[in-house]
Design a protein around this nucleic acid. Structure first.
Lengths: 143, 143
DNA sequence: TATAAATACTTGATATAGGCAAGTAAATTT
DNA sequence: AAATTTACTTGCCTATATCAAGTATTTATA
């Protein structure tokens, strides 16, 4: 296998995969949240109390855009923020009770959606699939 | 490995991969084309003369949206259309000379971008990577 | 220690992507 | 011949995203 074939394999994957799993659709799994919003909620759950800057270390969004999304999520009682006492430029962001529930719902839906995508495969095949994904993760992000 | 771990592996991949390769960005590799537009041009190149309906068998976009994108690409002299004589509802779409050049440019940029993403890996690692992508493709789309 | 530079976040203006519904014209079914 | 389906278009709208400028606070530097 030559370098050009390697690149073509990856590009072919890119073309097919992203659309097939619906990551380009405007509303994430018909939840009323966008993919980006759901991603933000996931990160806040993972980090516990966090900050816009921290979120953006992962997502790399336009700062203004992120600020607005957070504002919206706060006004919908999904997130809260409190001014940090250590650094008064910073706001600590966390999930509200409602936010926790919503995030869990999104989490569940996302899993169900993935389960659907692999449901036609046998368990051994699903395992092979997961190994392939894990291998890619390792190669691309851990070396 | 249990089912839940399988799903988590895939979801982790989804979270990381799509953003890291820039597939969510509005303009595709700073070319002035969107990912969707560049995708359409790719399909027209592959198919030669084709139709909006045929394109949408691959992309599944909103019909109105697709119609508008094609209109725009025509007005920018990237695509042309001519009424089919066999079925007068249908327009045959193809790349103009300019369109061919633009598509090649996009193609090249896309390959360069992928090459950059895998450039830190050795050739054997790149091969492993490609095999993993191919395996996923086979499992998800060929069974 | 005063000043400059960097960091964290916000706001305004605007572009673009994408979605929904209704509509035209031609072809196919019944 | 009438009803249905297919291929495509248009109008209207919202959400997503981008760019640029601005405020407040903290950190670096001269």
């Amino acid at each position: 296998m030559e370098e050009i074939e390697i690149i073509h394999s990856i590009r072919k994957f890119n073309r097919n995969y992203v659309r097939s799993i619906g990551l380009l659709e405007k509303t994430f799994l018909n939840t009323g949240y966008s993919l980006t919003e759901s991603h933000i909620l996931y990160i806040v759950k993972e980090h516990g109390k966090t900050t816009a800057t921290d979120i953006n270390k992962v997502l790399n969004l336009d700062e203004g855009y992120l600020s607005r999304i957070i504002k919206k999520l706060i006004s919908n009682s999904i997130l809260t923020k409190e001014k940090s006492q250590v650094d008064k430029r910073v706001f600590k962001i966390s999930l509200t009770e409602k936010g926790i529930k919503e995030q869990q719902k999104l989490d569940e839906l996302s899993s169900v959606s993935v389960a659907g995508i692999i449901s036609h495969l046998s368990l051994p095949e699903q395992k092979e699939l997961a190994h392939s994904f894990n291998k890619i993760m390792r190669l691309l992000y851990e070396e």
